[in-house]
Design a protein around this nucleic acid. Sequence first.
DNA 1: CGCAATAATGTAGTACGCAATATAAACTAC
DNA 2: GTAGTTTATATTGCGTACTACATTATTGCG
Lengths: 151, 151
Amino acid sequence: MSSPELLLSNQLCFLVHRLDRLINARYKPLLSALGLTYPQYLAMLALWERQELGVGELCEILDLDTGTVSPLLKRMESLGFVERQRRSDDERAVTVRLSEAGRALEEKARTVPGALASCLLRSEAEYGELKALLSGLIERLDERACGESGL
Amino acid sequence: MSSPELLLSNQLCFLVHRLDRLINARYKPLLSALGLTYPQYLAMLALWERQELGVGELCEILDLDTGTVSPLLKRMESLGFVERQRRSDDERAVTVRLSEAGRALEEKARTVPGALASCLLRSEAEYGELKALLSGLIERLDERACGESGL
DNA sequence: CGCAATAATGTAGTACGCAATATAAACTAC
DNA sequence: GTAGTTTATATTGCGTACTACATTATTGCG
């Protein structure tokens, strides 16, 4: 029989993975009412915040590869939420801007986070605690390989 | 400008999503040394625990669709880690069993969770706290649609 | 003019959810 | 008790997404 460290129910990774998929499933009906998928919603959050972004900037914000973001933006453009334009002063770069429809969507999206929070959270304090905990874990993993090659 | 509830950095969903992908990335090199992907590893954890499972049981344990698990098992079978056999007493059902190679892999996998934990966690207490917190959130989302249909 | 840097695109493999299908078992009606 | 319906189980197909790797295009520097 398995030793306790290999029990599925003891794996934090499994809990995080499961929670991520459950959250995703909760968002899905709310977002499909807006015409967005979950990753598209995250990209829209970034754009509502900044209005205009380079593709590279968006990749950094979302921590995604350009190979992921490029087709994502292509779909969002064909849906009419964003416009892409190659920069005239640097022909390598592409600027992503909200369209009118994309800006209009922000108003409709305003109720979305609250709907999820009411499912997930019991108090403002819990929100803060969770945010701090998750941010801490992310920071530890993001920095560098832990044991290896110290610093 | 965005209202605070739409700020990307304030979204727990984004933090969970990001953490999940970071964990996944950390596991990848460890698991590819075993010849497994991350979801395959989770399936193996379940099998090491139970030796023999129906496809449906595995779907429930992992909380995955049969449409996800079926091709996953097909790949794992072609890799030689599991065997699938239609049950004689119920031709609808398929039983999944570990192969010899699959059983042998457990020994090599024993060091994997600890490697991640040393990256992620600072203490045993933190592990317990996180496990309780995440489990609680999962339970809330798993139960049913929150506001809807009372009860 | 080459060479390196940066950004965008393309490709292959895996994963996930949903819908449709095939087959088998169980249940209902008469 | 058999015919027809319903339920259960697994597989397949489709659309979207993420990752790693390779390729292409533009720019800036030596």
